[in-house]
Amino acid sequence: MDLLVTYDVETTTPAGERRLRKVAKICEGYGHRVQKSVFEVVCRDADKVKLVAAIEAVIDPARDSVRIYRLPAMALDDVEHLGRPRAMDPRGPFVI
């Protein structure tokens, strides 16, 4: 499945900064960063469950916001992109 993951983590405290780094690290393990707080993810249903659980374990739901958009099949193959060239193919090899 194709996902778009976006997050906004409150960073006015050291704890918030740590949560932000943890959320970013989790997302880096599942997809490609396309902007500072935006990731394109191609995964299976089981991987999505693990991704959601990992993020839920880190964020403060009263202060942070994470949105996971499930896109139509192969939607990431048909992205109109302006500006700097796309650095990664979302379906290409993924090395951690």
Rank of each mutant, 00 (worst) to 15 (best):
V66F: 01
V23C: 07
A53L: 10
A53G: 13
A46N: 09
V38N: 00
R91T: 02
L3C: 06
Y7N: 01
A54M: 07
I26C: 01
S37N: 02
E56V: 13
L82Y: 06
H32L: 14
T11W: 00
R19Q: 06
M1L: 14
A54Y: 08
G92D: 05
K48Q: 11
R19I: 04
G92W: 00
E40T: 06
A57G: 14
I96K: 10
K22Y: 04
Y7I: 01
E80Q: 09
V42G: 06
A73N: 12
E40K: 03
K50L: 14
V23K: 04
R19C: 04
G16V: 13
I26H: 03
D60Q: 06
G83F: 06
K22M: 13
E40Y: 01
I26Q: 04
K22P: 00
E28R: 14
G16C: 13
P85K: 05
P90T: 03
A15H: 15
D77E: 13
A62N: 08
R18I: 06
D45E: 12
V41T: 09
R70P: 13
Y7E: 05
P61R: 07
Y69F: 14
D60F: 12
A53Q: 13
E40P: 01
K36Q: 11
R70T: 15
I68W: 10
Y69P: 03
Q35W: 04
C27A: 05
A24K: 10
D89I: 03
K25M: 03
A46E: 14
G83E: 02
T6V: 03
V66S: 05
D64H: 12
L20E: 07
V66R: 05
A75V: 03
P72M: 09
E80C: 05
Q35G: 06
Y30P: 10
M74I: 02
R84W: 13
L20Y: 13
A75I: 05
V42T: 07
E40R: 01
L76I: 04
A24I: 00
E17C: 11
V41K: 06
K22G: 06
M1A: 14
L4T: 07
V95K: 03
D77V: 02
I59H: 10
A87H: 12
P93A: 07
Y7G: 08
E80M: 12
K50V: 11
K36E: 14
V23H: 01
V5Y: 02
V66W: 02
G16F: 14
I55V: 15
D77Q: 11
A54I: 00
T12W: 05
V5F: 08
Q35K: 08
V34K: 00
D89E: 08
L82H: 04
K22T: 07
V5K: 04
V66N: 09
R63P: 07
K36Y: 15
E56Q: 15
V9I: 15
V9K: 04
A87P: 03
C43H: 02
R18Y: 00
A87E: 15
A15T: 15
R91L: 00
G29A: 02
L76Y: 03
E10A: 11
E17H: 10
P72S: 10
A57Q: 10
A62M: 09
A62C: 07
D64N: 08
A62K: 13
H81T: 11
D64S: 11
V34L: 01
A24D: 11
S65H: 11
V52W: 06
G16L: 11
S37Q: 03
I68L: 08
E80V: 12
V52P: 06
G92C: 07
K50G: 13
V9N: 05
A53K: 14
